[in-house]
Structure formats: C-alpha cells, structure tokens
Design a protein around this nucleic acid. Structure first.
Lengths: 116, 116
DNA sequence: GGCGTATATTCCATATTGGTTATATTCCTC
DNA sequence: GAGGAATATAACCAATATGGAATATACGCC
C-alpha cells in the first residue's frame, strides 16, 4: 500500500479522515460513528498511520488519533496541472458566452478588454 | 470501481492520464510508452472511460483517447477543506520558527541543546 | 496481582484486481 | 474478399485487500 492515492481509495478511510478533520478522536468513537467493528477500524488506522495521514497520541488505554493532512499535499500537487485543464474548459465556455452578441447580464460596458 | 479515487489509485492509470494531458493519443502509443501489453492498456482505458476520465474518438481502426479532467474536480472538492488544514500546519511551523530566539540552524552555536 | 476497558494483532475466508495469452472484432488496402 | 493492422474482449492466474471472529497486549484501578 503505502501510496496516498491507494490509501484514499477506501471510502471508509476517507470517512475517517473527514471525522478526524473535525477533531482528534479515540478509536472507539470512530467505531461508533462508522458502524464498523473495532478491528476493522484499527486496521484502517494502521494503514492511515503508515501513510502518514494520521498521528496517535496515547492517553492511558485510549489512543487519540489526529489528522496529518500533509501527505494530501502530494495529491494536490499531482492534481495541480489538471486544475488548469478543467479551468480551460470553463474558460472556453466563458469565452463562448462572451463572444455571444453583447447580452451580458448586469453590466452593459463594452471596453474591449474581456478577451484576455 | 466507478469511483474516481479508486480509479486513480492505480499508478499506471495516473501515468495514462499524465500522458493524455499532453495530447490525444491512440492506444498503441500508450502501449509503447507504458511498456505494458495492449490488453492491459485497453483494460485501464476501459476503467478510465467508465469513470468519465477519458473520451474516445474513433478514426478508422485507430481510437484516439482524450483526457476529460472534469471528474478530477470531485477529488479537488474533497481535498479543499484539507487544504486549509495543511496550510495551518505550515503557518504554525513558521510562527514557531519566528518565535524562537535567534537559534536558526547555521548560526554555528554549539551549546549542545539541539538534540531534542 | 487480578480484573475490566480500550486497542492491536492474528488467522481465515472471500472478493477484487492487474496481468498474460488467446481470440474476436473492426476497418483499411489490395 | 483475403490479408493485415489496431483494438477490444474472454478466460485464466497470482497477488492482495477487506472484513469478521478470536486472541493478545497495554493500561488503570481495586
């Protein structure tokens, strides 16, 4: 496993991250909210820990899990060049609309700078 | 499958997307660049197509595959709330470093307290 | 030290996936 | 219409991940 993308592929693990984004939580809390058995949750947490996506803090028998979002930056970085790509699509739509006979809702200004 | 995250979990599929981001390509081209067998590539393309991540255009026997980045916006949307999160961390680190008495690494001070 | 709680780990059965080989389909060219 | 190129599909195998039940471990408390 070890790869962030694979780790995120599991819906349950994304749920766990979503929960941990709100606050630090012990395993039992996650078990209750996810409707999974305790071993299943522990296993997912192990995977998340191995990927550096969560951190543990031990407090007696309880272990508080905390989000570490940093590895998600890797995903974000991979996504970055694509972002421009899907913006292009939107821009194309926009240009298309702009190119239409000047029927802009709102401003009637035509200063000629909109083609940029 | 069908879920964008799961589809992206495969390194080979991300490679395919990376290649298609550059330009539209026929299957054979991908086969050559990935060093995979043709059936393997076709399977990945099928998965990508099912997920709406690529589009096909038929031209005689050749099929040109093209990127459709839109589903990646879904991933981006999931990532959004986390983005703030990892910025916080960096900011915290920055504040931490700023708050330190001028003990920046590289100042040559050797009082032996840095092994923390 | 024994007990109960909270969590991790092991073992097992099942399911899915990615790859390979072989075959089918589609379309062009001769 | 026969042959060949480009791609898709089918059948099969090996590897792996997931979930559950049972068990082990760690810790605080009495």
């Amino acid at each position: 496993m070890a790869n962030t993308f694979e780790v995120l592929a599991e819906p349950r693990r994304r749920e766990i991250l979503d929960l941990l984004r709100v606050c630090e939580r012990p395993v039992g809390d996650l078990v209750g909210r996810l409707g999974l058995t305790q071993p299943a949750v522990s296993k997912h947490l192990k995977v998340l820990r191995a990927a550096g996506l969560v951190d543990v803090r031990q407090d007696a028998q309880r272990r508080w899990y905390r989000l570490r979002a940093q590895p998600l930056a890797e995903v974000d970085a991979w996504l970055a060049p694509y972002r421009q790509f899907w913006n292009e699509r939107l821009d194309a739509l926009e240009r298309h609309l702009d190119a239409m006979p000047d029927e802009r809702p709102g401003t009637g200004k035509t200063d000629g700078t909109e083609g940029i």
